[in-house]
Design a protein around this nucleic acid. Sequence first.
DNA 1: ATCAGACGAGAACGACCTTTCCAGCCGCGA
DNA 2: TCGCGGCTGGAAAGGTCGTTCTCGTCTGAT
Lengths: 263, 263
Amino acid sequence: MVTEITALRIVGTAFYEEYAAAMARTRPTADAGATDRPGSWRELAVARSLDPARARAEERVQRFLDAAVELMMENATGKDFTVQDVVERSGQSLRSFYQYFAGKHELLLALFEESVRSTAEQLQQTVDEIDDPLERLHRFVVEHYLACRPLPSTSSRRKIPSPAAMAEFGQKLLTEHPKEASRAFMPVVSLFERLLDDAAAAGVIRPGMDHRSVAGIALQAIMFNAFAATISGTPISRDGSAAADELWTLFFSGIGAGTSKGA
Amino acid sequence: MVTEITALRIVGTAFYEEYAAAMARTRPTADAGATDRPGSWRELAVARSLDPARARAEERVQRFLDAAVELMMENATGKDFTVQDVVERSGQSLRSFYQYFAGKHELLLALFEESVRSTAEQLQQTVDEIDDPLERLHRFVVEHYLACRPLPSTSSRRKIPSPAAMAEFGQKLLTEHPKEASRAFMPVVSLFERLLDDAAAAGVIRPGMDHRSVAGIALQAIMFNAFAATISGTPISRDGSAAADELWTLFFSGIGAGTSKGA
DNA sequence: ATCAGACGAGAACGACCTTTCCAGCCGCGA
DNA sequence: TCGCGGCTGGAAAGGTCGTTCTCGTCTGAT
């Protein structure tokens, strides 16, 4: 009976194929005693028969997620919501929550992944309208910065946790579960990396850099300068785009006077 | 009676004058009914008579801090310690703990401030041995990066929380209490800012930058790239100094090819 | 019709942080 | 010297929150 629960749990949190695959690999057919065998048609049949259940489960999970997003958007203070809150808001039971999520952290991770994914899509869309590789990088940095701001003014058609609210959790995730965090961040990092590759191919950025690593560093700087007061205590009252451009300039030109090499 | 408690609490957490001043300003002579008046000699007398008590209190507070640092250094995993743990380790009572600290967060804040302060001193010392302003910046970045690494190999003569362990809490603090976090970070930020000023005066860095803001951004990037896996998921196994130099190069030269301007 | 299993409602548990109460103890002033 | 006020240790209690468990109901598949 463990297998079914696991399956449902996978349905719940697997918004991305890699995640589901990873989970499946982790617990591959826990008790292979009775039903499942590596046959071909049998699996398909089981999957088909599981379809309605899967649909139901997905709908339930989605209700939890929606409730969590609602709570997150109401509490502008970033105050953490309680599992109880999510349960009550979703009109379901605590029992069900733990049926679908291994714990609160899985819920948060799911929200975070969804946020990153949607942000990446939006950025991809924005960037696609631009031809110049360097300008694409520029826009990416600025837009991502603005998206991570407390009030992104993004009329989210869908119920999607704002990147701003998620950035904070992203940070926490990055320190507590680096592995999962990295995977969750993948969509944006990959996009950024691709832009860097293109720019490098066009010869508009300095060669010899590890684009993946640069992307990581830059994204971290962008996100956490956007959503929080900087270490320096600089007030965030300034116009968003001004700060964004400042960050871009620093990122692009560095601090050097351009007369000598860095090291 | 509230005033005395407050006073001791100030003694406990006020490792920096600004902090004490702020607290004093916050609760200025709570009940001015009986004893204290803005006289001159009277205050001095009270202060003198309070001296032994103050010494005792400071010693007690220090015991709590030492215990906390010990626990923090034992748990290499960064696992959070409990207030109970600190109390037991320090051989004092829970009652006393809350006599000196308004809560766990004050203890953490105190540890954090001390860590930043000592790190700043050490960096200052290191940098003082160098003449070239640019090289000073370079060393600052590299050393700070290395200091924030999980295993800094710093033979801490004193009981001082390692910057690595503190970086994580620093991040949390930065999101939850930006005000206090900024103040706690001040020593390092100011030092960095000064180095930037010097470098600018020497003409070796790009003019027109807000040094304070740049310092904040850079420090954040340095610290949280040092102690955590980067967003990109790059393994941290590489030699520390190599990664540090990479970060410095990026910070100094940016990503630009140097042919065109950033914006 | 039957039966496994999902589901809801809620109690219960355990880990923490925090507060509070009580009884000693010490120092300081009358 | 005595007594008062306040610090201190010991311990218990309160509160929050995540997580688990119990029990009874309902549904959907066979």
